[in-house]
Design a protein around this nucleic acid. Structure first.
Length: 472
RNA sequence: GUCAGCAUAGCUCAGCGGUAGAGCAAUCGUUUCAUAAGCGAUAGGUCACAGGUUCGAAUCCUGUUGCUGACACCA
């Protein structure tokens, strides 16, 4: 709709563990799209934040004998550190424990309530005394806790607030029907459609405060706090300052949301129904990415194969890590990370092909004392623009690398080092200009490298330091 | 258990009815401007398995095996 403004956001990571490589993937993907849109002249908002309420965090904080907020502070800091480590161009940041978010969540609740979509009902809770935890049906085996099969599951009821999700079945299906690109990739759209078609049940959106106080107060009811989902989803608009910053909100919303496949339902159905209920426009688009395995295996603490994004960046640098995530992990499918593959593509793609190309060209240019004045800037052809619309980062990078290979070959074929100065001048100028264009195309993906390339290929040409020193 | 998707060279994937493709890795050759980089060539696959349809199947259909996801209160 609005061509001037663009808003993109990731999910708000839950702060019960250190930042995960999977979230790094998600936010790097969002960053690339944000930067791309910025280069095409739009005003971009890129939202980011942390999800900090709920039982799990409350328990962890108690275990660590810490005040929940202080406990969250430590994690929120770690997530904030991702911005620097991954060179993210985020413009907005909010924690769900920030007062602005809390009042946004309450305002959102009020709107849904006024619309008649929030009501009180008895909620059946299944509780395992052994774990001292509430259990869901999917966690039970034959109606018993798998960890404590000799203990009976206790049932009790409490009064909760419910959200009238069922009311929005038809409207959600209309939304999917009307906009076939609402969820990308399309098999995810199919998945959620099937889910909604099967019928929707209202779900509980509050918890008794006496049992679990770590949440946003339900307006007008001191006995309840909101269930994390409800408050966390409002994050997508509280980052923009809703409801206070009306202008900013109306400029940027609706936005594009990036989420993992485990988040499909929350983003594409629940959140959309909530928006309808609150009388706000639906999201523009939801992109669903896959998961990353580590050396072909699921990452888990017990296997000891968890990949920490900070370690990776420390070892290889920001742009190589971004390159791996964008080139080697198919954006919409599961992908694998391995150190050997990381080093392979670092050396072949980055050091040998791209880095060396910049070195040889700027070296030739410097020796001939060349100067380039032309102001080539960002330029994306329609294929690339279309591939951006479907988040096909790996394909875009492949086509950029095709250009890099072509340029390397072109230099070999012409062999400027065998030519006289006058014979090679125009040739070199042309090559360096192509290099600059490549730099611009790389800008959303590898911002730091791109800037080095661009600045090295304009004005008086000087040989660049190796962009990516070869490993080993 | 039910439903859906996937299974192609060592690795990552493209091809989706007409004699198996790319990149990386491997091997060999070649150039020297460059980060011992570049360029070229070679090798590497009964296209998961078994049936069927067709003049012809990696490509369509059926079955088997394996993996992944969904089947609602885990963010």
């Amino acid at each position: 709709m609005d061509k001037k403004y663009f808003y993109i956001t990731t999910t708000a990571p839950y702060v019960n563990a250190d930042p995960h490589i999977g979230f790094a993937l998600e936010i790097v993907q969002a960053d690339v799209v944000a930067r791309f849109n910025g280069l095409t002249g739009k005003k971009v908002a890129f939202g980011f934040g942390t999800d900090e309420h709920g039982l799990k965090i409350y328990r962890k904080a108690l275990e660590a004998k810490k005040d929940p907020l202080k406990y969250c502070d430590e994690f929120a800091k770690k997530f904030d550190d991702l911005k620097k480590a991954l060179n993210l161009n985020t413009t907005h940041f909010i924690r769900t424990t920030d007062p602005a978010h809390i009042s946004a969540a309450q305002e959102f609740w009020n709107r849904c309530f006024k619309n008649g979509d929030i009501y009180k009902k008895n909620y059946q809770i299944k509780y395992c005394v052994g774990c001292e935890l509430e259990k869901t049906d999917s966690e039970l085996e034959n109606g018993r806790c798998p960890v404590h099969p000799n203990l009976e599951i206790e049932n009790y009821q409490e009064e909760n607030y419910f959200f009238r999700f069922s009311k929005y079945q038809k409207k959600l299906l209309e939304l999917y029907e009307k906009n076939q690109d609402f969820v990308v990739p399309k098999n995810r759209l199919l998945e959620i459609k099937t889910f909604v078609e099967k019928g929707l049940e209202d779900f509980s959106i509050s918890r008794l405060k006496e049992k679990m106080p770590w949440g946003v107060d339900v307006p007008g009811d001191p006995d309840h706090v909101m269930y994390v989902w409800f408050d966390a989803l409002v994050f997508y608009i509280s980052t923009l300052g809703w409801p206070k910053k009306e202008k900013e909100f109306s400029e940027f919303w609706p936005g594009v949301q990036v989420a993992g496949k485990d988040n499909l339902r929350q983003q594409t159905a629940i959140w959309q129904a909530m928006l309808m209920s609150a009388g706000l426009p639906n999201s523009k688009q939801i992109f669903i990415h896959g998961f990353i395995t580590s050396d072909g295996k699921k990452m888990s603490k017990s296997l000891g194969n968890v990949i920490n994004p900070f370690d990776l960046v420390k070892k290889y640098g920001t742009d190589p890590v971004r390159y791996y995530l964008l080139k080697e992990i198919p954006a919409a499918d599961d992908g694998d990370f391995s150190y050997s593959r990381m080093e392979e593509i670092y050396n072949s793609d980055l050091a040998n092909e791209l880095g060396n190309l910049a070195s040889r060209l700027t070296n030739l240019g410097e020796k001939d004392g060349l100067t380039i004045d032309n102001k080539t800037t960002s330029k994306f052809n329609n294929t690339i623009i279309n591939q951006f619309n479907y988040f096909q980062f790996n394909l875009i990078l492949e086509s950029i690398w095709l250009e890099i290979k072509k340029l390397n070959k072109k230099i070999d074929d012409f062999a400027p080092w065998n030519k006289k100065f006058e014979e090679r001048k125009d040739f070199l100028l042309e090559c360096i200009d192509t290099l600059k264009l490549i730099g611009w195309q790389l800008h959303p993906f590898l911002p730091e490298t791109a800037e080095k390339i661009i600045s090295a290929s304009q004005g008086k040409i000087k040989k660049v330091q190796p962009l990516f020193p070869r490993l080993k």
